[in-house]
Design a protein around this nucleic acid. Structure first.
Lengths: 117, 117
DNA sequence: TAAGTCACTAACAAAAATGTAAGTATGCCC
DNA sequence: GGGCATACTTACATTTTTGTTAGTGACTTA
């Protein structure tokens, strides 16, 4: 398998590159939420309650920089910021969906418990 | 999104669980190679030349423990060990393939160079 | 006047993933 | 007897990722 270089980073296969863009703990959950509507920062915070401000902010910043999401700031007080998925972001949705379904299968196979609800 | 618990680990969504099983730097590259034939440890080493013995060994061990791969030891000297993908492992192949194709798309979109060859 | 809201950021701490170097057993070949 | 081969493991170091705590500005409400 060939190697790829981007921004002084070395990748050994396409999957590694894909995961550098949409991987990590929060990026897919964010994209998944944005897939059919805009979300405010505070709404994402409430929904992804286990994510700290810092991590949420960091993930969003990278998604914006990489063109998966756009950010709109309304000059109000207190401030309002809305995040919207882009076309590039939408292209990730089927991939996330497949991983999600695969994860659901695995959860069954491994008989994982589902503590709440 | 609900939470799941397995082996004292907490997962917040199915994708996170899937990635705990087939994620990391080496598991998908290994499964991808095993998809249509058996491989010896040393063959995998040669092919995944950037992986250290330790990481390769660790990834294989976990894949075996989780039932994605089986390991066959031949009592010869020097030893020979063969790794084979299981049915459970085969179920990961379409997922890996999709991630791979998505990664290839992204590499094009981001105009990433391909230094060798 | 004081406290609350929102969307962050900075500094630091902890945890997880990965890398490096060296060592193990057995037996063959020279 | 010395070196080589295979498939590892162990101890330790470094890097990367994630978490924790505290603070900011401006205006609104009590």
């Amino acid at each position: 398998m060939p190697d790829f270089v981007k921004d002084n980073h070395l990748f050994h296969n396409p999957v590694e590159f894909a995961m550098s863009k949409i991987g990590g703990t929060y990026k897919m959950p964010i994209l998944w939420r944005l897939k059919d509507k805009k979300w405010r920062f505070s709404e994402l915070q409430k929904s992804l309650s286990h994510a700290s401000d810092r991590m949420l902010s960091k993930a969003l910043k990278e998604l914006v920089e990489d063109g998966f999401v756009t950010k709109e700031i309304f000059p109000e007080v207190p401030p309002r910021v809305e995040y919207t998925i882009t076309d590039r972001g939408q292209k990730a949705i089927p991939v996330i969906e497949m991983l999600r379904n695969y994860g659901l299968d695995l959860l069954q196979e491994f008989e994982v418990e589902h503590p709440k609800r």
